[in-house]
Design a protein around this nucleic acid. Structure first.
Length: 222
DNA sequence: TTCCAGGCAATAC
DNA sequence: GTATTGCATGGA
C-alpha cells in the first residue's frame, strides 16, 4: 500500500482535520469530536490563512507547540489574543513579563519568549507578500526542521511534508523507514512516494491533511 | 506520582 | 559526529 492509499484510509476513517486551528474560528466549534481539544479548525475549507495576521498567528502557534500538547498552546494563544498582541510589533513592544505570563501554559516559556522575539524581528523584515525560505527560517534561533516546515506548509502553503515524532512512528510501524533515518531523508521518502500519486496543485492540501491525520491517528491509538 | 505532549539548542562523550 | 540533557506546563 503506497502512502497515498494510507492517506485515503485515514481520511475516510477520521474525516478532514482542517488544520491549522485559528482564533477567529475558535467559537465555531466546527469539529467538537476531535481528540484532545478544541476548536478553530476548518475542515474542507482550504481558504486559510486569509490575511497576514492569520499567517503570523500560525507561525506563533508553530513555535509554541514545540514538544507541547495543543491544548496547552491553545491557552497561550488565547492569552496573547486577550492581550491583543497577535502582531509582531506589539509583542516586541509589550513587556517581557506580560508576554511570558501569557505563554506560560505552553511550557518552556523563557525559551519560547526568546524564540518568538527572534521570529518577530524576522517577520517584520519580510516585505509584503514575501515568503520566507526554509533556509532563512532554519537560521533563526529556536526554529528547527519541523517548526520551519510547519510554518511553510500551514502559514505559507508551500508543499513540504512535516516530519514529527508521530510521522516517524507511523512510518516505522509501516516498516518504510528505520529508527536512525534523519529528518530530511524521511521527508524525501514521503514526498517521493506521494508524488507518484498526486498532482502538484494538490500537494499543499494533502500534505496538510495527511500530517494532521497522522497526529490524530497517533492520539487515538494510545 | 509518573509520564508525555504537534522540538530545539547546548553540552557531553 | 552522535548521544544526552535542560527547558516547563497541564492533563491522563
Amino acid at each position: 500500500m503506497n502512502l497515498f492509499e494510507h492517506y485515503k484510509k485515514l481520511l475516510s476513517k477520521y474525516g478532514a482535520q482542517g488544520w491549522w486551528p485559528l482564533i477567529e474560528l475558535h467559537k465555531n466549534n466546527i469539529n467538537p469530536t476531535k481528540t484532545g481539544s478544541m476548536n478553530g479548525y476548518h475542515p474542507n475549507d482550504h481558504s486559510y490563512p486569509k490575511n497576514n495576521k492569520q499567517i503570523f498567528e500560525i507561525c506563533l502557534g508553530a513555535i509554541l507547540t514545540q514538544n507541547t500538547s495543543w491544548t496547552n498552546v491553545e491557552k497561550a494563544v488565547m492569552n496573547l489574543n486577550d492581550l491583543n498582541v497577535i502582531d509582531p510589533y506589539k509583542i516586541i513592544d509589550e513587556s517581557e513579563d506580560k508576554i511570558k505570563l501569557a505563554i506560560k501554559p505552553s511550557g518552556y516559556f523563557n525559551q519560547k519568549y526568546k524564540k518568538i522575539i527572534e521570529f518577530c524581528k524576522f517577520f517584520i523584515k519580510l516585505k509584503e507578500n514575501q515568503i520566507p525560505t526554509r533556509e532563512e527560517l532554519l537560521e533563526l534561533w529556536g526554529i528547527g526542521f519541523e517548526t520551519a516546515d510547519s510554518i511553510l506548509l500551514y502559514a505559507y502553503r508551500i508543499p513540504v511534508f512535516i516530519v514529527d515524532t508521530y510521522t516517524k512512528r507511523f512510518l516505522i510501524s509501516l516498516d518504510l523507514i528505520q529508527k536512525d533515518w534523519d529528518y530530511n531523508k524521511i521527508q524525501e521518502l514521503i514526498e517521493n512516494d506521494l508524488g507518484k500519486n498526486i498532482k502538484d496543485d494538490q500537494k499543499v492540501i494533502i500534505y496538510q491533511e495527511f500530517h494532521a491525520l497522522i497526529v490524530e491517528y497517533n492520539k487515538r491509538i494510545k
